[in-house]
Structure formats: C-alpha cells, structure tokens
Amino acid sequence: MAKADEAAAVITVEGLQDLLRAIRARGYRAIGPTLQNQAIVYDDIESIDDLPRGWTDEQDGGLYRLTRREDEALFGYSVGPQSWKKFLHEPRLRLWTAERRGEDTSVTPEAPPSDRLAFIGVRACEIRAIEIQDRVLVGDLYVDPHYKARREGALIVALNCGKAGGTCFCVSMHAGPRVKHGFDIALTELLDGTEHVFLVETGSDEGRAILEQIPHDLASSREVDAAEAVIAQTASSMGRQMRSDDLNELLMNNLEHPRWNEVATRCLTCANCTLVCPTCFCTSVEDASDLTGERAERWRRWDSCFTMDFSYIHGGSVRASTKSRYRQWMTHKLATWIDQFGSSGCVGCGRCITWCPVGIDITEEVCAIRGCDASAEESV
C-alpha cells in the first residue's frame, strides 16, 4: 500500500477524530460527507459525528437512495450527487464590481479566496477529476485565479473505496478504486466485526506532519493485506464496465450513427449529467446592476452544453437539436477532450447515469455504437 520507504500506519475511530482536530488546528476548513435531504453531500464537518455512520447508497440508472448498513462504517457509500468541483470551481462566483460616483467609475476585481480547505474522504476517481480540472483551469496559458487559490491551499485526505456503486466504472477508466497519488493523507477503512480502524498512508510533508500529531501505530502485515483485499473486492464489483482504449476513434467515426437519434428521444436536455459531473467546466457570465445605475456586478455561473443558449451566436443556436447537444457532450467527454487536454474527461464515477432522470447510461450508449451487447462490454 504505502511507498517502499514509508510504512503504513493505523489509527482508530477515535484517532480519526484526532485527525480532524489536528487538521482544523492547522487552519483548515474541514469539508466531508454528511447526511442531508436523503443524500450524502459534502459540507463542513467538525467531528466524526457529522459523517454518515452506518449508511450506504443504492444507485442505478435514474435511481439513488440511502439504506442502512449492517455495520458502523463511516465511509460505507460510493459517491453522492456532489463532487469537490463545487468548492474548487464554484457554481456561482462574482468576478468584479463596478461603482460610479459622479463622473468617476471604479472596477474592483473579486479577490481570490484566502481560506484553506481540507477535503475529507476523496475517492480515487475524484482525485483524477481534480487533476483533469487542474489541466483545464490552471495548466495552460490562461489561469483561473480563484480555482488556483483554492487548489493550492487544499489538503486532500483521500479514501480507498470499500464499496463500488451500482453505476461505478472507474476501473474501466483507469481512475480507481485505489488512490495512488495526489493526496496528503490516504485512508482505508477496515471493519472485521471486532475491530474498526483505518490504514493510513501519507503522500506529502503536510500529511506526514499531521499524522505525527495524532496517536497511531505501525500497520501490521495483516492490516496491510486486509486493506489490499478491500480494494481488490471493490475493483471486482464495479456496477458498470466500458471499454475505453479506442473511444476517440470509435466516436469520431460514428458521428452519424442512428443511436444518436434514439438517445435523443429519451434525453430531456435537463443538464443534470453536466452539473453532477466532476470534470465539466463550462460557464456563462451574467451582468447585473442596481436600479440607480451606480453599481454593477459580473457573475460567473456554471452552464451546460445541453442548454439552447450555450451555443447561441447571432442568428440562433449552433446546436438546436437534442441529438446534437447529447452528441456534443458525449463526444467531448470521451473523445475530443483527449485531443484538447491529453486525457479522457470521464473518470467513471457514474454520477451522470445515477442522476439522469430517465436513466440514460453512457456505458450503454458507447456499447450500442460499438455494436456489442451491454452485458458483454469489457474494460480495457
């Protein structure tokens, strides 16, 4: 599990509480999974009592519900409707404020945030999604200063998945379930009926400094093997599969495939899939002013390629049909994203399947274009 020169540690459930306390003491705002509105969502946490102890989720196409587990796992779910994108690439952000005083007008850009965030329970697929957004928003000539400030100050407490969701296919996208890099601290939750502990790995100097502040023991070979078994079991129980080695060529060679017409009869163009996706980054800007005309603001908000206005230019929308908008989303996510950024834009989290009101399944659509039986689709 851990690097060859770093031994894994073990902490108890009480040790996890100590970990949260140490993180907060270092000036971080701790954010993690909480139970709200019959879903697991990310929000501020102060203690392990805020975590979804003993709860899990059931997911399928267009279906999400919480159910009780038979144990007291703190992270015994897959992923909820939100991703960490909500905190790094905010849904709505004021960009600047303009004020007029007589003949003078001043424009004040919105200052980048200064608070430091600690993300608790970040899955491997979500770390991969953050890396993809890094490439888009700070990895090129034009840098988003607000994203950059959030990202540089963030502490990542990762989690090796102990449960695959019904719509997960991260193995197919080489994005999980094992956390390999991009973390400060990584946890694996271990429950065997008598013992409830966490295997801990560190991936940065900050992570090592935090671990040194809390009680911990050196992990035994039995505990390391148990963590390996948890990850292996999760990898072997994916809810979906999708061959991913040839997606760019497959989709670009089938832009007029009849399946695009078929899926368009079901798609509501509601944009749910893009809003829950951890990598989608499209935005629009809105200007607003007060009634006196003395103050104006520009706001950036999430947008979606599924909305008619998103591709509007003088004379109308470039993608007026449902078919063209669904095709744009799927081909960009799985194919032309590779041309733009060097990787797929999909991490296999399955959110787009779960939160589609009519249960459209991206893995099924790929399989249909490939001309295969969905039950026989294999990951590569």
Rank of each mutant, 00 (worst) to 15 (best):
T105Y: 12
G80C: 00
Y147W: 08
L88F: 15
F75K: 01
W84M: 02
T105W: 14
P113L: 09
Y64G: 07
D60I: 13
R68I: 01
R116E: 13
F119S: 00
V79G: 04
G139S: 10
G80L: 02
A154S: 15
G102C: 07
V107M: 15
R128L: 07
G61E: 05
T97R: 15
G80W: 04
F119W: 05
A73L: 14
P81R: 11
P113Y: 10
R116K: 12
C125A: 07
V138P: 04
D115Q: 12
L63P: 01
I132D: 02
V136S: 03
V107C: 13
R116H: 10
L74P: 01
S83E: 07
L141K: 15
L88E: 05
D134A: 12
Y77C: 04
L137N: 03
P113Q: 10
Y142C: 00
L93C: 07
R69V: 03
K85G: 02
K85N: 04
R123E: 12
V143H: 04
I120T: 00
P112A: 13
P113M: 09
H146C: 00
A73D: 09
L93I: 08
T97E: 15
R101V: 08
G121R: 04
R116M: 10
W96Q: 13
S114N: 14
Y142G: 00
P113G: 08
A124F: 06
V107K: 14
K85P: 04
S114C: 09
